[in-house]
Nucleic acid binder design. Structure first.
Length: 260
DNA sequence: ATGGTTGAACCTCAA
């Protein structure tokens, strides 16, 4: 059973790559971020034709998240509690009905934060606090849980190609790292890091400055898994080759494999 | 050198 997360940076532009990848790798569940389209514009028919059920939480121009699943989806939830003024589409959750039981999954697009002096930075920290509070409830269900997405956080220096160069960046700031550890401390593990304790691999490379060609990447996309899911974890990898194609997203998919 | 690239929508913003 493969569960993957991928920030597509526009589902419209990336649809041919997504369809080809779904046909080739056949992941059972895919968590998408940065759709950059409203629900009505989501290419549901093309994806459903490949056998996927959908939970889409779209938004015009920015953000937008979705769940694709080969199994039926129940209990679909869109958005996080804690701030009625936050209208950004950054969270969608559902229960995947596998024959062996149920797996709760969520696709999350944590705000980038732009710069520590920007008002987007405190918004990022507040969002992470709301995510923490919601996950605290989810872990109490004692079920297989996978919260995947673009966290816009490199958890440790090994997750940054050149930590000195990125010092001060909102992607590796102490406060956001602390916010992520606070979520992990609820009992969630980073699937890729569990499988590869010492590998300096990345999931995002900046379009600017030929980041990918220079191998200047960061690992900011994660699959956080509950102990019940970690017990079944078999492998995890990053689809780096998908960052090398023509018209690539700036993110590569991160995949975790489970033996149910 | 305070740049550079991409996407969506608009003539700029967000990443």
């Amino acid at each position: 059973m493969k569960i993957a997360t991928w920030n597509v940076n526009s589902i419209k532009v990336r649809l041919p790559q997504l369809l080809e990848w779904l046909r080739r790798d056949q992941p059972e569940v895919v968590l998408l971020q940065e759709l950059k389209c409203v629900d009505e514009a989501f290419p549901a028919i093309e994806i459903e034709e490949l056998g996927y059920n959908l939970a889409v939480h779209g938004q015009k121009t920015y953000n937008g998240v979705a769940i694709l699943s080969r199994y039926r989806l129940d209990d679909i939830r869109k958005g996080l509690d804690g701030d009625d003024t936050d209208l950004q589409a950054r969270y969608v959750e559902a229960v995947v009905n596998v024959p062996q039981g149920a797996i709760r999954v969520a696709s999350v697009y944590v705000p980038n934060g732009q710069d520590v002096t920007s008002d987007k930075f405190p918004y990022k920290l507040r969002f992470l606090g709301r995510l923490h509070d919601h996950i605290r409830t989810l872990v109490s269900y004692d079920e297989m849980l996978v919260v995947g997405g673009d966290y816009n956080i490199a958890p440790a220096d090994i997750d940054v190609h050149h930590p000195k160069k990125w010092d001060g960046s909102v992607l590796m700031h102490d406060n956001v790292r602390r916010a992520l550890r606070r979520i992990a401390n609820l009992g969630l593990m980073d699937a890729f890091r569990v499988c590869h304790p010492d590998s300096p691999e990345f999931s995002w490379w900046d379009y600017r400055g030929s980041g990918f060609e220079r191998e200047e990447g960061l690992r900011i996309d994660h699959l956080l898994i509950s102990p019940q899911a970690a017990d079944k974890l078999k492998a995890s990898h990053i689809e780096k080759a998908m960052r090398a194609v023509e018209k690539a997203s700036d993110h590569a998919p991160v995949v975790a494999e489970f033996t149910l």
